[in-house]
Design a binder for these strands. Structure first.
Lengths: 192, 192
DNA sequence: ACAGTCATGTAACACGTTACATGATTTG
DNA sequence: CAAATCATGTAACGTGTTACATGACTGT
């Protein structure tokens, strides 16, 4: 069973059709309407990606949705697709890439809600917290090691990184506490 | 004067050789040794990129550094290269892309230190502050508009975004204050 | 002499972007 | 009926990744 290596974009597409079956156009609207919209996939990337996933047997088009329905191809995941999605959700958090992949990790966290157990989610958040702590510690070490004499901007930029990753780190603690606290999915407005 | 459109990576390479002439291998070490190292350029992207910049007349290889010097191609910017770099530094901050380009903006901020006046830097930081404020306001509006009923993770992810961009926003104020306070305009060559 | 590093480069491959093409369906 | 939107797709082009190749120099 050679896991076909997929791009992050493809993993997200599988995740979205796992949430609910959708056509390419539907997915476009999702990207446009949610905060995911920082990335706006083009037709030239979206439709070929869906076709690749179909060719790899990870999604399939509902043929029942056919005929008069205005030429729409609505995709749903196959069993292999759901398996690949579950595997992706369990991808370990690497310290060396946690900064680069932070957005991706957040996306995974969102998609875990209806696919993973509370323990798995808390384990993931714990790993993310540890990775962010290690990463910020590395930044602090670097800041301490390089004496900023003449140049101010690099030090300020480093401050930015520290401020941002510390905010992420704080958030992991907040999220862990929030998920530990609430057993039933009640509609408590999260405010902090 | 048709500005040749360059990738972000190419702009950064020009910026680095503007800071001080460097070979491809030198640049690799810079990426490996500094917090820029979240991105690790491969040989297959770095050397072709330098050749493209040379072909476009934006950098040139020091031929004096030649012959016995162990086959090194040390690049320095041409006048056109410095002009392109200056133009890039002055690229306006767009609200719609400020989240995606935040790392790039920080990189520009670092490179402005010895290339831009204090007024230009403060103007840039002001624009960045405004863009981040508008972006976070948009996130807040989205959070308020979408009633999170059953799902908790999307709301928590939104909290993360808000926390992170607010940290960036706070940093802009901090940086503006720090640069306003600073008297000494050092013009020493950069060390990183 | 040999290994390791320095230093640059190439080739195959896959992917994203841009721009364009196509036709069906709704709306004024 | 015309225009806008829905909906999918293709082709050229550039670039990044991976993996490999090459040669010069350094240290032991």
């Amino acid at each position: 069973m050679a896991e076909p290596q997929l791009t992050s974009f493809e993993h997200i597409l599988i995740g979205l059709v796992c949430l609910s079956p959708a056509s390419g156009y539907d997915l476009k609207r999702v990207f446009a309407a949610t905060p995911m919209g920082v990335y706006q996939p083009s037709s030239g990337s979206l439709y070929p990606a869906l076709r690749r996933l179909e060719a790899k047997g990870l999604v399939k088009a509902l043929d029942g949705t056919g005929e008069s329905a205005r030429h729409r191809r609505v995709y749903e995941p196959t069993q292999a697709g759901r398996a690949a999605h579950a595997t992706w959700l369990r991808t370990p958090v690497e310290v060396s890439t946690v900064a680069r992949d932070l957005g991706l990790h957040l996306m995974r966290f969102v998609m875990m809600e209806h696919a993973s157990s509370r323990e798995e989610v808390l384990s993931f958040l714990g790993d993310l917290k540890d990775a962010l702590a290690a990463f910020t510690a590395g930044l602090e070490r670097y800041a301490g090691a390089t004496a900023q004499l003449d140049d101010r901007h690099p030090g300020l930029a480093l401050d930015h990184g520290l401020a941002v990753y510390r905010a992420s780190l704080r958030w992991t603690r907040h999220a862990i506490a929030a998920l530990r606290a609430a057993p039933a999915p009640s509609s408590q407005p999260s405010s902090w």
